[in-house]
Amino acid sequence: MTTENNVLIEVKDLEKHFKKSTVKALNGVDVKINKGDVVVVIGPSGSGKSTFLRCLNLLEVPTGGHIWFEGQEITDKKNNINKMRQKMGMVFQSFNLFPHKSVRENITMAPVKLGIMKKEEANRRAEELLQRVGLPDKIDAYPNNLSGGQKQRIAIVRALAMNPDVMLFDEPTSALDPEMIGEVLDVMKELARDGMTMVVVTHEMGFAKEVATRVIFMEDGRILAENTPREFFENPENERLRSFLSKVL
């Protein structure tokens, strides 16, 4: 168990074996994520990068290994996963806003119902966050009236409203029309600049180059390369990574 102060998430020997599959989706992943890190995970599809991210907040239950978050073991059943998830915001590829609730309710529901904020406070926070992502006029709209980019920005706000210590992004721009990717990435860049710890699974190499503190390359459920973006993109040591980069860049 780790007690180093600035380690936020520690992953050891993480394995995930889906029941119906013959191969392991994750096959021994070890990572340390420090406070303030922006870790970008890239890799071909089926490499296990989304599974890895979803294991971090136990949306996917690992079949082996350990994960610690803020010194508490997430994979230990005695710990209250719901409490820990409150500190881990997650943004999904398909937004997953609650369609039967207004934008305001989407944002304030969790903090209010989980007793973290009073209603007025949550409302103020929602307004302030919507201002930050440039959507203050959408507070009373319903998700179905919004564009993909707007939905994703609001999904980010919904996660931020809980004041999380880390934000997990699962391919946040993959379901967006090209012209909307920029607005979402801008919000994420600003978050990174403000010092939010982020783990981002994405295909946006530009984002990785610009804001990542570390880039991880995964394939076949393992981490094949991990480096600063500069080294990662300019001097890729791994043969497999070189061929991957040559295809996507």
Partner: peptide, 20 residues
């Protein structure tokens, strides 16, 4: 995804079921 979104915010299973 609705269940996952609810759980990722910290709601437990029953809260997500009944509220979302």
């Amino acid at each position: 995804g609705q269940m996952e979104a609810g759980r990722s915010l910290g709601f437990n299973y029953v809260q997500t079921m009944t509220g979302i």
